[in-house]
């Protein structure tokens, strides 16, 4: 399947280009547009981004694989990213992880059969004061308890 930026996204990128000394600076912004459109970065999209920025596709591929928030494969509709780093671990991350595993019936790195949830552990989300925390897609959920997790997941259905 081919990839093309939407008209709207192209316009936004063009406007953004004026802010930078070089078009190559639009690498991450353009890849974010791809993520926004498709939810992952396909090889076709890599070619399109490379062409748009005037850089080799291999450079785009190197960048996509460097940053953990870009995916080369689709993930679930809701990507649950539970923080695993120290403050969250000290404050009950383990319990939340176990709860999520049981509730969703999947392990870390897996997606539910209906394609709805993907469970990941991620590094520090910068919310150590409200640990434990998780992010679902772009939304942060803090001070997690099993009850709160129930509520959050309920709200997504």
């Amino acid at each position: 399947m081919g990839f093309a930026f939407t008209e709207e996204n192209l316009e936004e990128l063009e406007a953004l280009a004026k802010r930078y000394p070089s078009k190559e600076a639009l690498m991450l912004p353009a890849l974010w547009k791809v993520m926004e459109q498709d939810g992952y970065v396909s090889m076709d999209a890599i070619d399109v981004v490379a062409d748009y920025l005037g850089v080799p596709p291999m450079k785009v591929y190197g960048v996509v694989t460097f940053y953990t928030m870009f995916h080369l494969e689709p993930v679930g509709t809701y990507h649950i990213q539970l923080c695993r780093t120290l403050s969250c671990s000290l404050c009950g991350k383990g319990e939340i992880l176990q709860y999520l595993r049981n509730k969703l019936g999947i392990d870390v790195g897996e997606t539910t059969p209906d394609g709805k949830f993907t469970l990941s552990q991620v590094e520090c989300l910068g919310s150590c004061g409200t640990a434990p925390v998780m992010q679902i897609n772009d939304t942060l959920y803090e001070n997690l308890t099993p009850e709160k997790v129930d509520e959050i997941l309920e709200g997504l259905k």
Binding site: R19, Y20, A25, L28, L31, W32, F66, Y67, T68, F70
Partner: peptide, 12 residues
């Protein structure tokens, strides 16, 4: 003065 936000993508 122009201010532009540049969004990172997951790399400490």
């Amino acid at each position: 003065v122009d201010v532009t936000i540049h969004r990172g993508a997951g790399a400490y």
